[in-house]
Design a protein around this nucleic acid. Structure first.
Lengths: 229, 229
DNA sequence: GAAAAATTGGACCGATTGGTCAAAATAAAC
DNA sequence: GTTTATTTTGACCAATCGGTCCAATTTTTC
């Protein structure tokens, strides 16, 4: 059986109201958030990101998450009732972080320069937060069982909006005519590749210091490919 | 615990002698390969590709592989002694298929046209054999525990060889100067993206018929980016 | 500092899963 | 057609894992 579908639909959604809200921890039934609660939940989410991104949902064990978070398994389950809840929580947190850079693509900027800056931002994210990228990649690779509503909803909306911007630039003759959606896919693919396929990149290059060379190459190809002749 | 490292080193290797040889099935101890053996092993490998690519090594269960292969679990284990053996067998078979297209990059061809043809081949592979791509992506995403020697050995050699060809083209002024390794990464990333992130591509496009548009976009960017001005 | 609430962890449980075994059934060899 | 080798399967086992329970401990409240 594939990775379980964890979330059932709960209606439409927006970017600020991502549809992955997990069960509130039992301790929060009453009163306000405790200091210990905040600390432990943060430690758990960090541990969970490491474990889930490295092994996927099915491969991850609560015992390992608990150990990395420095607590026992029942203690972990005191903060998150189920494994799914932990996964959804860390996926949600990652998602916010992940959708941000595209938003900054500015319709009023110089087209080629805007895209170049976007690529640079994504490349830095890949270097600085590879685990987030891997978590996301793993989820989508296995059919996005928990993310499909987000992909079809907020993500598609976001992409469509920016695609319209790019289409406008093309119409103005400021960019080579290409399909904006596929251009965005290209940027996602080429930048996230360095996080998701890190072992391969490292093995082929014989080094893990790829950022500058990668940026230079992406720059050359995209700028050359997008600048009207 | 992450996906187990299944294979321990067995020294240097070549492309034709990939280092993922699994245990020979028990039935092959004696005499030659049976008709039933060949049939069942093929059915098992097909089933295993589907299951492993969809759920990863840890997520896959022998029961599901057996069911898809149309046999009982003990029967499956009669042909492959352990889960690892099945995984390694299907990974090996995939690998051969996967390393092929790069080999066809012809040093004597017209540079931009050769790269364009390579991209087209990879894109068709992504459409026609997404499961192979996903299997490979999953393995690398989780640290390539079973593939690292291949990545560092035969794969790196293959890439280095073709990188030299590209470097030659650049030296002759027939291509925009870019780092050949990163150019190859770009091609891998942009083409395999359509297989590995298929749910996302489908969700954003609202369609699964991406080949022609993708090819046109990749063509425009890569040709524009690689053609000297 | 006593009472109440929140936090921690040892022991335990049922379900799943990879894998075994031995005996039955089928196919191949002669 | 009998013997021999191969193939199939039901029953079963040990380990792992998600999750529960409850008593002990610590922190907060007043």
């Amino acid at each position: 059986m594939p990775q379980e579908k964890i979330r059932e639909d709960r209606g439409p959604m927006t970017l600020t109201d991502l549809p992955l809200r997990h069960e509130t921890p039992p301790a929060r039934r009453t009163r306000k958030r405790t200091r210990i609660q905040a600390e432990n939940e943060a430690r758990i989410l960090d541990a969970a990101l490491a474990v889930f991104s490295a092994t996927g949902y099915r491969g991850a064990t609560l015992a390992e998450v608990a150990e990395r978070a420095g607590m026992t398994k029942p203690n972990l389950l005191y903060y998150f009732r189920r494994k799914e809840d932990i996964y959804l929580a860390v996926l949600t947190r990652t998602l916010e972080h992940w959708l941000a850079p595209l938003r900054d693509l500015n319709a009023d900027g110089e087209p080629v320069e805007e895209i170049r800056a976007y690529i640079r931002r994504k490349l830095q994210l890949a270097r600085d937060f590879p685990k987030e990228s891997q978590l996301f990649a793993n989820e989508v690779l296995h059919g996005a069982p928990n993310l499909m509503p987000v992909l079809r909803g907020p993500l598609k909306d976001q992409v469509d909006e920016k695609a319209a911007v790019i289409r406008g630039w093309i119409a103005d003759g400021r960019l080579t005519p290409v399909d904006p959606h596929h251009l965005i896919f290209m940027i996602w693919a080429t930048t996230q590749h360095y996080a998701d396929f890190a072992p391969q990149v490292g093995a082929v290059l014989g080094s893990n210091d790829w950022l500058d060379e990668a940026a230079a190459t992406l720059d050359a190809i995209f700028v050359g490919g997008l600048t009207p002749r």
